[in-house]
Amino acid sequence: MMIEIKNLRKEWKKGDVTLAAIDDINLTIKKGEIVTIIGPSGCGKTTLLKLIARLLTPTSGSVSIGGDSNKRRSVKKLSIVFQNPVLLPWRDVKDNVRLPNELNNAEQNNNVQHRINLVGLKGFENHYPAELSGGMQQRAAIARALILNPGLLLMDEPFGALDEINRNKLNLELLKIWKRLKSTIVFVTHSVSEAVFLSDRVVILSKRPAKIKEIADVNLPRPRELGIKESLEFQEYVKCIREKID
């Protein structure tokens, strides 16, 4: 699903003071592309993601998803994965993954088991979130995000709270899932190496108010394996991008 962001600006008003969170963002994301957004912490990455998700309304400018720029959130087009898994503790894995179906009266959709298998949670369908490790909870959150076949997957530091081993594992699996489902992914992170590993393009934001400082193409071959991180080329990308972050 193609995304077009034009002259996007978001301000926060606090009393008489107006603070711009993000300003002058122009970006086109192609269908099936993985784009990561990276920048100094607190720069407005999450705000940008929420604007794309239409959880926030822009002060000016527009976001169009698949050519549809109307203000309403449209169903089935996009899903979000947050840094926290945000699973409902009173529902087991199966019922958490099924939640979007219930909210959209899509109960005939029987993707549930398939998505659970896809994220490697087979056998844990009846476990409650409290019985799962952080990594497994995040897997369940990803399965839930995939349930309605979203054309666009928005991910806000989804693996930020995980240890490196889990993080690498999930990065790899995300790429596999992406290859199968062919959805567009916008991924917020503050790990440069994660950004390079996943993306086709890395969008580097400046300090607040966030503007696009630079967009770096990552021309590493796909499919990517973890070994690629040891390559000189990979490290060159990492170094190059790191230098550009404030």
Partner: peptide, 26 residues
């Protein structure tokens, strides 16, 4: 309730009634 939980349900176009029944009440 964490803001993220509301955001999650809203991102799936949940109605106010659904947010009450599936999130606020439990």
């Amino acid at each position: 309730i964490e803001q993220e939980s509301f955001d999650l349900l809203r991102s799936f176009s949940a109605s106010k009634w659904q947010i009450f029944v599936k999130l606020r009440f439990p």
